[in-house]
Protein backbone atom coordinates (compact mmCIF):
# COMPACT_ATOMS: atom_id res chain seq x y z
CA UNK A 1 0.00 0.00 0.00
CA UNK A 2 1.56 3.24 -1.05
CA UNK A 3 0.83 6.62 0.43
CA UNK A 4 -0.84 7.56 -2.82
CA UNK A 5 -3.78 5.30 -2.24
CA UNK A 6 -4.03 6.48 1.35
CA UNK A 7 -4.08 10.01 0.09
CA UNK A 8 -6.72 9.03 -2.39
CA UNK A 9 -8.95 7.64 0.33
CA UNK A 10 -8.32 10.62 2.53
CA UNK A 11 -9.30 12.86 -0.34
CA UNK A 12 -12.50 10.97 -0.92
CA UNK A 13 -13.38 11.13 2.76
CA UNK A 14 -12.65 14.83 2.80
CA UNK A 15 -14.79 15.40 -0.25
CA UNK A 16 -17.62 13.43 1.30
CA UNK A 17 -17.33 15.41 4.52
CA UNK A 18 -17.39 18.67 2.67
CA UNK A 19 -20.34 17.59 0.58
CA UNK A 20 -22.28 16.62 3.70
CA UNK A 21 -21.39 19.88 5.39
CA UNK A 22 -22.59 21.94 2.46
CA UNK A 23 -25.81 20.02 2.15
CA UNK A 24 -26.84 19.95 5.75
CA UNK A 25 -26.22 23.20 7.59
CA UNK A 26 -28.25 22.98 10.77
CA UNK A 27 -28.75 26.38 12.22
CA UNK A 28 -29.32 27.83 15.63
CA UNK A 29 -30.71 31.26 16.05
CA UNK A 30 -29.62 33.66 18.73
CA UNK A 31 -31.13 37.05 19.34
CA UNK A 32 -28.68 39.29 21.11
CA UNK A 33 -30.82 42.34 21.49
CA UNK A 34 -32.44 42.67 18.13
CA UNK A 35 -35.81 44.31 17.59
CA UNK A 36 -37.44 41.01 16.47
CA UNK A 37 -37.63 42.14 12.87
CA UNK A 38 -34.74 39.97 11.75
CA UNK A 39 -35.84 37.10 13.95
CA UNK A 40 -39.28 37.04 12.45
CA UNK A 41 -37.78 37.15 8.98
CA UNK A 42 -35.49 34.25 9.87
CA UNK A 43 -38.51 32.34 11.09
CA UNK A 44 -40.29 33.26 7.88
CA UNK A 45 -37.60 31.52 5.86
CA UNK A 46 -38.80 28.23 7.37
CA UNK A 47 -42.35 28.71 6.23
CA UNK A 48 -43.91 27.50 2.98
CA UNK A 49 -43.12 30.58 0.89
CA UNK A 50 -39.35 30.27 1.35
CA UNK A 51 -38.91 26.82 2.90
CA UNK A 52 -35.18 26.49 3.52
CA UNK A 53 -35.60 22.82 4.32
CA UNK A 54 -35.15 22.18 0.61
CA UNK A 55 -31.57 23.44 1.05
CA UNK A 56 -31.09 21.20 4.03
CA UNK A 57 -31.30 23.95 6.60
CA UNK A 58 -33.03 22.99 9.80
CA UNK A 59 -33.50 25.22 12.80
CA UNK A 60 -32.25 23.39 15.85
CA UNK A 61 -32.99 24.15 19.45
CA UNK A 62 -29.81 22.95 21.06
CA UNK A 63 -26.47 24.58 20.24
CA UNK A 64 -24.93 21.11 20.48
CA UNK A 65 -26.71 20.07 17.30
CA UNK A 66 -26.02 23.14 15.24
CA UNK A 67 -23.42 24.08 12.66
CA UNK A 68 -24.41 27.62 11.86
CA UNK A 69 -25.12 30.34 14.38
CA UNK A 70 -27.46 32.93 12.96
CA UNK A 71 -27.06 35.93 15.20
CA UNK A 72 -29.11 39.09 15.09
CA UNK A 73 -29.09 42.31 17.01
CA UNK A 74 -26.55 44.78 18.32
CA UNK A 75 -24.92 42.61 20.96
CA UNK A 76 -26.22 43.99 24.26
CA UNK A 77 -24.07 43.77 27.34
CA UNK A 78 -26.58 41.49 29.01
CA UNK A 79 -26.72 39.04 26.14
CA UNK A 80 -22.97 39.11 25.51
CA UNK A 81 -21.85 36.26 27.73
CA UNK A 82 -24.83 34.16 26.70
CA UNK A 83 -23.89 34.66 23.08
CA UNK A 84 -20.32 33.61 23.73
CA UNK A 85 -21.52 30.61 25.68
CA UNK A 86 -23.84 29.49 22.92
CA UNK A 87 -20.99 29.89 20.46
CA UNK A 88 -18.65 27.86 22.62
CA UNK A 89 -21.20 25.11 23.09
CA UNK A 90 -21.40 24.49 19.38
CA UNK A 91 -19.22 21.64 18.18
CA UNK A 92 -16.61 22.32 15.51
CA UNK A 93 -16.74 23.10 12.64
CA UNK A 94 -19.03 26.06 13.20
CA UNK A 95 -19.94 29.13 11.24
CA UNK A 96 -21.58 32.42 12.09
CA UNK A 97 -23.95 34.46 10.00
CA UNK A 98 -24.65 38.01 11.14
CA UNK A 99 -28.08 39.13 10.03
CA UNK A 100 -29.27 42.71 10.00
CA UNK A 101 -27.64 46.07 10.17
CA UNK A 102 -27.50 45.98 13.97
CA UNK A 103 -25.37 42.87 14.02
CA UNK A 104 -23.08 44.33 11.40
CA UNK A 105 -22.46 47.76 12.80
CA UNK A 106 -25.01 48.63 15.41
CA UNK A 107 -27.36 50.29 12.95
CA UNK A 108 -29.58 52.80 14.70
CA UNK A 109 -28.36 51.58 18.06
CA UNK A 110 -24.81 52.59 17.34
CA UNK A 111 -23.66 54.58 20.33
CA UNK A 112 -26.27 53.38 22.80
CA UNK A 113 -24.67 52.75 26.15
CA UNK A 114 -25.76 49.17 26.46
CA UNK A 115 -24.69 47.77 23.11
CA UNK A 116 -21.42 46.64 21.62
CA UNK A 117 -22.79 47.09 18.17
CA UNK A 118 -20.59 44.82 16.14
CA UNK A 119 -20.84 41.07 16.29
CA UNK A 120 -17.39 40.77 14.77
CA UNK A 121 -15.88 42.21 17.94
CA UNK A 122 -17.26 39.31 19.95
CA UNK A 123 -17.17 36.23 17.77
CA UNK A 124 -15.73 35.67 14.30
CA UNK A 125 -18.33 36.17 11.60
CA UNK A 126 -18.31 34.32 8.29
CA UNK A 127 -21.10 35.99 6.38
CA UNK A 128 -22.67 39.41 6.77
CA UNK A 129 -26.21 40.07 5.64
CA UNK A 130 -27.14 43.75 5.78
CA UNK A 131 -30.68 45.05 5.74
CA UNK A 132 -33.10 46.34 8.30
CA UNK A 133 -34.28 43.68 8.25
CA UNK A 134 -33.07 41.81 5.18
CA UNK A 135 -35.82 40.19 3.17
CA UNK A 136 -36.07 36.43 3.75
CA UNK A 137 -34.70 36.00 0.26
CA UNK A 138 -31.65 38.01 1.23
CA UNK A 139 -31.11 35.81 4.27
CA UNK A 140 -31.26 32.72 2.05
CA UNK A 141 -28.85 34.48 -0.26
CA UNK A 142 -26.50 34.98 2.68
CA UNK A 143 -26.67 31.32 3.59
CA UNK A 144 -25.98 30.39 -0.01
CA UNK A 145 -22.94 32.67 0.11
CA UNK A 146 -21.67 30.75 3.12
CA UNK A 147 -22.23 27.42 1.41
CA UNK A 148 -20.50 28.74 -1.68
CA UNK A 149 -17.47 29.79 0.29
CA UNK A 150 -17.38 26.32 1.82
CA UNK A 151 -17.55 24.75 -1.60
CA UNK A 152 -14.60 26.77 -2.75
CA UNK A 153 -12.61 25.27 0.07
CA UNK A 154 -12.55 27.90 2.74
CA UNK A 155 -11.05 25.89 5.57
CA UNK A 156 -13.13 25.73 8.69
CA UNK A 157 -10.72 27.22 11.14
CA UNK A 158 -10.82 26.58 14.82
CA UNK A 159 -11.19 29.94 16.38
CA UNK A 160 -10.68 30.89 19.97
CA UNK A 161 -13.04 33.49 21.30
CA UNK A 162 -11.10 36.59 22.17
CA UNK A 163 -13.18 37.75 25.08
CA UNK A 164 -12.24 35.80 28.13
CA UNK A 165 -15.10 35.83 30.53
CA UNK A 166 -14.05 34.15 33.76
CA UNK A 167 -17.42 34.43 35.49
CA UNK A 168 -18.87 32.34 32.73
CA UNK A 169 -17.26 29.15 33.94
CA UNK A 170 -18.53 29.55 37.46
CA UNK A 171 -21.98 30.33 36.17
CA UNK A 172 -22.03 27.36 33.88
CA UNK A 173 -21.45 24.98 36.73
CA UNK A 174 -24.11 26.38 38.95
CA UNK A 175 -26.63 27.19 36.29
CA UNK A 176 -26.96 24.53 33.68
CA UNK A 177 -29.39 26.16 31.31
CA UNK A 178 -28.64 25.76 27.66
Amino acid sequence: MSTDSENFYAQIVNKLKNWARINSPWAIHFNSGSCNGCDIEILATLTPRYDVERLGIKLQGSPRHADVLIATGPVTLQALDRLIRVYEQMPDPKYVIAVGSCALSGGVFDGCYSVIGDLNKVIPVDVYVPGCPPRPEAIIFGVVQLLDSLKKGKKPTKIVVSNDVPELIIEEKSNGNN
Binding site: L104, Y128, G131, P134
Partner: peptide, 12 residues
Protein backbone atom coordinates in the same frame (compact mmCIF):
# COMPACT_ATOMS: atom_id res chain seq x y z
CA UNK B 1 -30.26 45.87 -5.33
CA UNK B 2 -31.26 44.18 -2.12
CA UNK B 3 -29.22 40.99 -2.04
CA UNK B 4 -26.08 42.20 -0.39
CA UNK B 5 -24.64 39.34 1.62
CA UNK B 6 -20.88 39.27 1.74
CA UNK B 7 -18.20 37.25 3.45
CA UNK B 8 -16.03 40.29 4.09
CA UNK B 9 -16.83 43.58 5.66
CA UNK B 10 -14.79 45.57 3.16
CA UNK B 11 -17.57 45.17 0.63
CA UNK B 12 -19.69 47.49 2.72
Amino acid sequence: LWEMASTTKEAF
